[in-house]
Design a protein around this nucleic acid. Structure first.
Length: 548
RNA sequence: GCGCCCGUGGCGCAACGGAUAGCGCGUUUGAUUCCGAUUCAAAAGGCUACAGGUUCGAUUCCUGUCGGGCGCGCCA
C-alpha cells in the first residue's frame, strides 16, 4: 500500500462516515488501477459495494460521496462517476513525481515492506531424494521456492529456507546397491543393479570417481560386507552434487535437515509419544495407526508397521514437530504435484499434534511436461531417462530457466519444449527485462555532464506518468506476491515495467544537452526505474545485468 | 470408482468478483541523421471447454457434464 492509495482510502472512509453514518474498515475499501486511462489514475467500487447495506442505487451513493469528498487529505485533482457506479480519481499532476526522490533515496531498500511483521516462517522446498540428479520438476520447485523466500524476506517475514534430506528408507538402500554395482562394474566385475535400482548416469560417474580415489580393492570383497560403505559414500556424494547443482542455479538453503538425524535424536519417539498422549493413535493388526480421518482424511494412516518399522509418514511428522519446536509460527511446504495426496495426512498430523491447521501450508508445484521432437518426453529417475537441471542450465542459462519457471503460476500445468530450449533463450522474456536494465545503466553511465535533479516539476509526459504509476505499485506488488507466495506476479510486474520504460525511451529523449533541466529530471526518473527494476530482478533471482 | 490440479486467440501464459478479457511467441505493416533496434508504433486473431446457479457485475465463487494431468501402499 503506497501513500497515495492510503490517503484515498482514508478520505473515502471518513466521507462514508460523514455522509451515510456508516463505518467502513480500510480493508473494506478497494482501490484499483483502471486499465483505461480515461478512467483516471485510481478507482474505487465502494459505492457499488455499499448498495446492499444502504439500500440505495450505486450511482446515487457515488454522487453523494463525490459531493462529500475533502480533497485536502488526498492528492486528488478531480473525481468522476463512471460506468455502473465506479468513482474514478485523477491525481494532482506533480504529486506522483515526488516518488522519484523517495526511490532514489531508498535505493536497494525500495519496495521493502513490513507485511510479514517479522513472522517466523519455515519454508521447505526441493527436498529431492539424494538418489539422482535434479530434474525439471525440481528446478521449477527450486526457482519458485527460492524466489518466494527472497520476496518474503523483502516483505518483512523472518524466513528460514530448509531442505529435508531423505537419507533413510528403502530408496537409499537401492541407491547404495546401485552404486555398489556400478563400482564393481567399473572394476570389471559384472554385478547387476537391483530391480528397483537407479540407472542414472550420476551413479556411474560417482562410481568412477570412487574408483579413482580408492582403486579396485573394494571390488575384491564380498558385496554383502561393504554395502554400508557404499551407502555412506553415495549419500555424501549425491547430497554434495545436489548442493552443487542448486548453487549453480543460485539456490541455497539455510538449513539441511537429515531424516536419519530425526531418528538418531529420538525425535520420532518423541512425536509418537505426543500423538499417543493426545489420544490420536490406536493399534490395529499389530500396526499403530493415526486417526487422520478426524481431520478430513479419507482413511487413517499407519505410523508403525506390523514389522515394527516406521512408515515414511512418521519421521516426517516428527520433522514437522521439530520445526514447530524450533519456534516457527508458520510452516510452508512446497511439494511436487505427484505428492498432492500427501497433503491431507500431513495437515491432519499437524492438528493431531495439537496445532491449528493454518500453521502448515502446503503449496503444490505442478509438473512441467517435457516436450522433445514434438512429443512428450516421459522421464524416470529410476531408469535414468531424465533431463538433469545441469543440462537445462547449460543449454539455456540460469536466468532464462529461472525466469521461465517463476513467470508462471505454480499450479498451472506447463510444457517445456526441450528442442526449443536454446531458441527459447532468444525468445525468453527475461532478456526483454534484462535489456531494459542494461539500457537504463547505459544511460546512467553517460550522465557525467548532467546531475540528476532533486525536483521533478517537468516530469509530466504521458509516458512518464505511466512509469511513475508503475513504480508506485512496486511495494504493494511485492507485498501481495509475498503473502500469496506467487512470485509470478512479480514477473508480470517486471514485464510491464520494462515495457513502459522501453516505450518511454522511444518517445522521451533523456540526455538532451539543449534542455539541461529536463534532462536532469528525466535522469532522476531513469535512476528510479533502474533501482526498481534492479530490486525486482534480484527478488526473483535473475541477474540485473548492466551490459549485454 | 474416489480425491487434488488444470481447461482463456495458432502456441505458451496473465487478469484483488469489476468497466472494451491482456502479454509474449508466431503472422502482417510501418519506425533509426540522436541516449544500446535484444527496441518502438500499429493490425489481424476470442461465444474464457459446455450447461445451469449465486449478484448490480463471473475468466474468477457454487453445482453438474466433458476433456487432460497426477495421486489413491503397513513404498518413499
Amino acid at each position: 500500500m503506497n501513500q497515495i492509495e492510503q490517503n484515498l482510502k482514508t478520505m473515502i472512509q471518513s466521507t462514508v462516515k460523514n455522509v451515510f453514518d456508516h463505518e467502513l474498515s480500510l480493508d473494506d475499501i478497494v482501490i484499483e488501477l483502471p486499465k483505461d486511462k480515461a478512467h483516471g489514475d485510481y478507482a474505487t467500487n465502494v459505492a457499488m459495494r455499499l448498495t446492499k447495506v444502504l439500500k440505495k442505487n450505486p450511482k446515487e451513493v457515488a454522487f453523494a460521496l463525490l459531493n462529500g469528498f475533502d480533497y485536502t487529505v488526498a492528492d486528488v485533482e478531480k473525481a468522476e462517476i463512471a460506468g455502473p457506479g465506479f468513482i474514478n480519481f485523477f491525481i494532482l499532476k506533480g504529486s506522483l513525481a515526488q516518488l522519484i526522490g523517495k526511490i532514489v533515496e531508498a535505493g536497494d531498500d525500495y519496495g521493502k515492506t513490513n507485511t510479514g511483521n517479522g513472522l517466523k516462517v519455515n519454508v521447505e522446498y526441493v527436498s529431492a531424494n539424494p538418489t539422482g540428479d535434479l530434474h525439471p520438476g525440481h528446478a521449477r520447485g527450486a526457482a519458485i521456492g527460492d524466489a518466494v523466500t527472497r520476496i518474503m524476506k523483502f516483505a518483512g517475514f523472518d524466513v528460514t529456507r530448509e531442505f529435508y534430506v531423505n537419507d533413510a528408507g528403502n530408496q537409499i538402500n537401492n541407491m547404495a546397491l546401485s552404486l555398489q554395482a556400478r563400482y564393481y562394474q567399473a572394476c570389471g566385475i559384472d554385478l547387476p543393479l537391483p530391480q528397483d535400482g537407479y540407472y542414472g548416469k550420476d551413479l556411474v560417474e560417482i562410481a568412477a570417481t570412487l574408483k579413482s580415489e580408492i582403486g579396485d580393492a573394494k571390488s575384491k570383497e564380498d558385496p554383502q560386507d561393504n554395502i554400508v560403505f557404499f551407502k555412506e559414500y553415495g549419500l555424501v556424494a549425491e547430497l554434495q552434487k545436489l548442493k552443487d547443482d542448486l548453487k549453480l542455479f543460485r539456490v541455497e538453503f539455510d538449513v539441511y535437515t537429515s531424516e536419519q538425524s530425526i531418528y538418531d535424536r529420538g525425535l520420532v519417539e518423541k512425536a509418537l509419544q505426543q500423538l499417543m498422549d493426545n489420544g490420536m493413535t490406536y493399534v490395529h493388526e499389530d500396526a499403530v495407526w493415526l486417526k487422520t480421518t478426524q481431520f478430513g482424511d479419507d482413511k487413517d494412516r499407519v505410523l508403525v508397521r506390523g514389522n515394527g518399522l516406521y512408515t515414511y509418514l512418521m519421521p516426517d511428522i516428527a520433522y514437522h514437530l521439530n520445526k514447530k519446536d524450533r519456534g516457527f509460527k508458520k510452516l510452508v511446504d512446497f511439494l511436487g504435484a505427484d505428492h498432492h495426496g500427501y497433503i491431507m495426512r500431513l495437515k491432519a498430523a499437524i492438528q493431531a499434534l495439537g496445532y491449528p491447521a493454518e500453521d502448515l501450508d502446503v503449496d503444490i508445484i505442478q509438473m512441467a511436461r517435457m516436450i522433445k521432437d514434438g512429443e512428450e518426453f516421459k522421464m524416470s529417475k529410476r531408469t535414468g531417462k531424465a533431463v538433469a537441471l545441469k543440462d537445462l542450465i547449460e543449454t539455456a542459462g540460469v536466468d532464462a530457466i529461472r525466469y521461465f519457471f517463476v513467470s508462471r503460476a505454480a499450479d498451472t500445468h506447463m510444457d517445456l519444449d526441450l528442442d526449443m530450449a536454446t531458441k527459447q533463450s532468444n525468445e525468453n522474456p527475461v532478456y526483454y527485462a534484462q535489456y531494459a536494465h542494461a539500457r537504463l545503466c547505459s544511460i546512467l553511465r553517460q550522465q557525467e555532464k548532467i546531475v540528476p535533479s532533486n525536483h521533478f516539476e517537468l516530469i509530466n509526459h504521458e509516458k512518464e506518468v505511466e512509469l511513475l504509476k508503475q513504480l508506485n505499485e512496486f511495494p504493494s506488488v511485492v507485498a501481495d506476491s509475498a503473502s500469496t507466495r506467487q512470485p509470478h506476479k512479480l514477473c508480470n510486474y517486471i514485464q510491464r515495467l520494462a515495457q513502459l520504460f522501453h516505450s518511454f525511451y522511444n518517445e522521451c529523449y533523456v540526455l538532451d544537452m539543449e534542455k539541461p533541466e529536463l534532462s536532469a529530471q528525466r535522469l532522476a526518473l531513469v535512476k528510479a526505474v533502474q533501482i526498481t527494476l534492479h530490486n525486482a530482478l534480484n527478488l526473483i533471482g535473475v541477474e540485473p545485468v548492466e551490459r549485454m
